[in-house]
Design a protein around this nucleic acid. Structure first.
Lengths: 190, 190
DNA sequence: ACTTTTCTACCGAACGGCCGGTCTGATAAT
DNA sequence: ATTATCAGACCGGCCGTTCGGTAGAAAAGT
């Protein structure tokens, strides 16, 4: 009931503020102000500032990781699958800009165990791409080359959209995702 | 004389520490410890923590910006020039990993005027790439497409190397730069 | 040659302020 | 009456910053 909404509101405010100012520069007071509470009252919902940050990381990559995994092991040629993966990934980034910013920027403000989890997720994402790239290369669909480097190049290109995309700008999320999916495939095609 | 060395040492320590912990999480005490001074003594060399950060940004992009500009307006086909630009850019990133990390991560810890300067530099870099891409496209060397998006994709891919490159790892700086230069061209080739 | 002053580089204590976090008594809802 | 929720004062601690002081070298005066 009300408590649930509060908790959601607190998390949402924290995410917004952490993105804008960074975790360390943000104060619990600001978050409290944003949800209309006094600082002390936050601790009814949250054990600590750090725990709040950790919670913001939890489950954030689940959805896009699942989508990319599905595209990776779906039907179609490696080219088609890679395109779908890139598209899903870019859309995942664009639809969660605040999360992505915090996820990438505050990684090392996390306690060790949470950091490990983040690294596992990132590796899982890389592995999906690498697998499809290897497969496509062995079939001759993709140019020869270091598949690890290829995956990193691709993910870099797609991750970076979070730094320049403006939600109410010239381009829709879909337009960017489509364009980048095409580029991803072309980058690997002979 | 000695003062000069101290100042250099302070900046170097600050850069290292800002990269490892982030600007706000780092304390003047740590920087003082790293150079063997008391934190109060730092203020003999530096007006404030913020000024220290600003100084770390100063002139950081000058060299690579000049190299990329030279490659952009050099001889050769757009393909060759773009390749040289990407190579120069990647090398610039790889050879200044600490600076790049701080540059990208602490951008918005800067006072407004310094932030403006950073944005100008970033725009200048984008413009160089965009110009060559437009030229190559009009000559038919590159595929049709949004040149702004192309530049952003390319720069994203190349900038992202700072997140995964390990100086004493498997790959030399040159190997990565060469590989990425090739990928950059391929991404735009029909 | 010897004394005195000036300057540089640094010390180290202290300061005000804000931080994350705690505590308690009041309030509002049931 | 009981319980869930919150207001607001409060704490210790660390933060960036200031500042009076000083050792020692260099420069100037005699």
């Amino acid at each position: 009931m009300r408590a649930r909404q509060r908790e959601t509101a607190i998390r949402a405010a924290a995410l917004r503020i952490f993105r804008r100012k960074g975790y360390h520069a943000a104060s619990m007071q600001e978050i409290a102000d944003a949800v209309g509470l006094y600082k002390g009252s936050l601790y009814y919902y949250v054990a600590s500032k750090e725990e709040l940050l950790v919670r913001l990381f939890e489950g954030r990559t689940e959805k896009v990781l699942a989508e990319v995994a599905a595209a990776a092991s779906g039907a179609g040629s490696p080219r088609e699958r890679l395109s779908a993966m890139a598209r899903a990934y870019v859309l995942g980034v664009l639809r969660n800009l605040d999360s992505v910013h915090v996820y990438l920027r505050e990684e090392h403000s996390l306690p060790p165990s949470a950091l490990q989890q983040v690294h596992r997720e990132q590796k899982a994402m890389r592995d999906h791409f690498e697998r499809v790239i290897v497969e496509g290369t062995s079939r001759g669909d993709f140019v020869q080359g270091d598949p690890k480097l290829a995956a990193l190049a691709l993910l870099g290109m797609c991750t970076w959209v979070h730094r320049w995309y403006r939600p109410r700008g010239r381009l829709t999320e879909s337009a960017v995702a489509d364009d980048f999916a095409e580029r991803a495939v072309r980058m690997l095609s002979p």
